[in-house]
Amino acid sequence: MSEPKATITLRSDLAEIERLSEFIAEFGEAHGLSHKDIFAFTLSLEELVTNVINYGYKGDSELPIVVTMSVHDGTVCATLDDQAPPFDPFSRKEVDTTLSVEDRPIGGLGIHLCKKMMDTVAYRFTEGHNLVHLHRVLRGPSAGVAVPSGSAEVPGDGDDNDEP
């Protein structure tokens, strides 16, 4: 594989979140990602890794969390690999945005934001590993405020979609 790729292995410890965000910022700067793109990945990966540490590994595991980022044809892919019991973070019901802001429960917000920030999200469990894939088509600094609602297909990049 010649595509630019970087990997970080994290311990099951919330203090590792800071290393994760530094890793994403460094990857982003090295590959010319906009501030918006770096923010989208930082937010999404922090949310997912925090959930793995708190609910998957329940805080005290010796097992690692491996995050890989790559960029190809204007799309950034991130993969999160952990060995906690099988859990699909995207299986939870969508936040009900028809409820009034007064009535809407605030829980589940992190995963909702992750789905909104990414163009596609996917999950599969294979050989004892939870694998979460995130794809986002890069937005330039002038790409405006449009964040696609719902999960859209990744345009022009059909070679790397790991559909479950």
């Binding site: 501030h35 918006k36 989208a40 945005t97 802001v101 934001l113 909104k116 920030m117 405020v145 964040v147």
Partner: peptide, 14 residues
Amino acid sequence: DPLRELVEVSGLAG
């Protein structure tokens, strides 16, 4: 901008 967008997509802009 990214923080404003975040508030927007969170559904909490109201």
